[in-house]
Design a protein around this nucleic acid. Structure first.
Lengths: 155, 155
DNA sequence: GTTCACGATGAAGCTACCACATGATGAATG
DNA sequence: CATTCATCATGTGGTAGCTTCATCGTGAAC
C-alpha cells in the first residue's frame, strides 16, 4: 500500500486542511447568523421551510434528525424572534404547520444570496480546470467517507 | 468576471460539497467521541494537554478561545470521567495544572491513531497527483476564506 | 366506540457557552 | 513591609441545543 511516512504526512496534512476549512467556515457562518439573531439550529428550520414550504414540527424533526421535542424549542425561539408562525394544520387538528413570516422569507433569500456570494469569494478566483480538480477530489473524499461510515455502522 | 449561471452553479456545488464533508466529518467524530465518553469540547482540552504538557486552566481558555469559567466546567467533566487530574501549580498557588491521567494519555494516543487512520481511509486511494491537486485547491480556498474573514472584520 | 397510534408540549436533566461577583494569591509600589 | 492592583479559579445565574419520559388531545382503524 506504500504507506511510508511521507504519504502519511501528506494525508494527515490534507485532513488538517479539510478540518481547518470546516472550522473557519462554521465560525464565519455563526458570526453572520449572530448578526441576524439566528443560530445554526434555528436557521436550519428556516431553510427547510423556505425550500419545502410549511411543514409540521414532526416532519422538521425527521428531516433535521433531532427529537420532536427539540423542534418545539427551536420553533419557540424562531416565533419569539419573528421568523416563523405556527398555524393550524388544515386537515389534522393535532399538528401545526410552521410557516415563514415575511421577515423569515426575506432572511432566507438573504442567506441564499450570501451563500452564492461566499461560493464566489472562495472559488471565483480558481481557474475552471482547478475548480474541476478540486470538485473531483472532494467527491472522492466524500465517497470514501460515506463508505467508511457505512462500514463502521454495519460491521 | 464571467459570472454566468454555469460558473455560479459550479461554485455553489463545490461549496455544497465542502459543507457536506464538514457535516459528515463532524458527525463521524462525534459518534467516535461519544463511544469514548467524550465530547468535542472536552477532547480539545485532552488534545492540547497531550501536545503541550500540563497547562493551567487559564492557558487552556486562552488557547481554546473560550472563557476561563467554561474551562472550569470542561475540566470538571473530564475529571469526573477520569481523563484529567487537577494538580497544584508548583510555583503559583492560585493556579492549577491540568494533567492527563494514564487513561487520558491512552485516549490521546488512540485519537491520534484514529486520525491518521481516517486520513488514510479518505485520501489513501487518491493517486499522489490528485492528492496534490486537492491539497492545492484546499489551500487556495483556505486563503480566500481567511482573506474574506479578515476583510469582513476590518471593513 | 373503544383501542391504539401519533402530534405537540410540560418536566427534568445534560453539555457548552456567557457575564458578573468573590476569595485567595501574586507582584509591584511606596 | 503594608497596601494596592492584577490574576486564577470558581459560585451564581442565564441562554441555547439536545435528550427521554409523561401527558393530553386528536386521528384512524377494528
Amino acid at each position: 500500500m506504500m504507506n511510508d511516512l511521507h504519504d502519511l504526512g501528506r494525508r494527515t496534512a490534507a485532513l488538517d486542511k479539510v478540518i481547518e476549512l470546516s472550522v473557519l467556515l462554521n465560525d464565519d457562518m455563526d458570526r453572520d447568523l449572530a448578526r441576524r439573531n439566528l443560530t445554526r439550529s434555528r436557521v436550519h428550520v428556516v431553510w427547510l421551510i423556505s425550500q419545502h414550504g410549511p411543514m409540521t414540527q414532526r416532519d422538521l424533526a425527521a428531516v433535521i434528525g433531532v427529537s420532536a421535542r427539540n423542534v418545539t424549542g427551536l420553533v419557540d425561539g424562531l416565533e419569539r424572534t419573528g421568523f416563523v408562525r405556527r398555524e393550524p394544520h388544515p386537515s389534522d387538528r393535532r399538528a401545526l404547520l410552521v410557516t415563514l413570516t415575511p421577515h423569515g422569507e426575506e432572511t432566507a433569500a438573504d442567506l441564499q444570496r450570501g451563500y452564492v456570494e461566499l461560493a464566489g469569494q472562495l472559488f471565483g478566483s480558481l481557474p475552471p480546470r482547478r475548480l474541476d480538480e478540486l470538485t473531483k477530489g472532494l467527491d472522492h473524499v466524500l465517497a470514501e467517507l460515506r463508505r467508511a461510515i457505512a462500514e463502521a455502522e454495519s460491521g
